[in-house]
Amino acid sequence: MKEFTYIITDPEGIHARPAGELVKAAKSYKCSIKLTKDGKSGDCKKIFGIMGLAVKSGNEVTITLDGEDEDEAFAGIREFMERNL
């Protein structure tokens, strides 16, 4: 299992379109990918789960990855978030 924290810088937070892109990115990996904010978590492969957390700019989120390709996903998702969120 791997984990990293990230502070959202996109002024709009994780709204619909970036949430969709995050889901697309997460779905390309086999491992489970969870996003946690203030103790509540959502599955990164489910759009309602992610949008339901209403992540805003400045929020700190924790990404938890668990499964066979977690190393690859760790790098991939972190890069995605740095670039887009």
Partner: peptide, 16 residues
Amino acid sequence: AAVFEVHQMMLEDDDF
């Protein structure tokens, strides 16, 4: 156009 992609994901969402 991305909104229609988001709609597709919503339709495919396991929870839904």
